[in-house]
Amino acid sequence: MPGVTRLSVRDIRKSFGAHEVLSGISLEAQDGDVISVLGASGSGKSTFLRCINLLEIADAGEIWVDGEQIRMIHGSGRSRPASQKQVDHIRSELGMVFQSFNLWSHMTILQNIIEGPVHVLKRPRAEAVSEAEALLEKVGIADKRHVYPAHLSGGQQQRAAIARALAMKPKVMLFDEPTSALDPELVGEVLRVMRALAEEGMTMLVVTHEMSFARNVSNRVVFMREGLVECTGTPDEMFGDGASPAFRQFIGHFAN
């Protein structure tokens, strides 16, 4: 459904002690948007992503997922969500892919993927298994379903982690530097899966250093600097002449 706002973040602020990491970030994602979030390390882009599904709790700001606002209590002292139940529900609608995969080591790949559908969504096991097998087929590791994570390459683990997130049928997928922990020769297989997802119309927010992905796959690029959105636009605008000097300098580091 194009035109539906899947994710809306308004004026998010976050400090760690005296250090302000996010100084008021807003962002909106319509259905099917693929937004690449770029920025130097320390610019707050990972923290921003983690605030969206409340792995970090923002000090101020609003988060809306598929039209539902996450209720927060910003009283004296630390902010906290008003209802853990709502947090769990919102998180089940946001698929998260981590830099270091974070698969559950004591479960096989198939068990990793059906865990959420069976125990969080309470879906029948047989259904979850057949869907998981289809997902494994899609990410190209169907033959690894009874293997434990430690026995897979990084690229295979990350593809399994993407399948695990997709099994929850999320409204939005969040990617936190999904290829940064991979050996260079394994980056391509993960990016291919992500590109296929984008082409299917999945709404995606991708924190990345992969300039080719930002440029060729996403329809919007957000450049973060010192806790703020420095500039944003379509890839053509951003990688053309219109971008800010700071962004041109940033992508200059990737040119050589």
Binding site: N53, Q84, F98, L103, M168
Partner: peptide
């Protein structure tokens, strides 16, 4: 990290 992954799919 494994705990965080569980939280991210809605476990608590």
């Amino acid at each position: 990290r494994e705990i965080e992954a569980a939280r991210s799919i809605g476990m608590s």
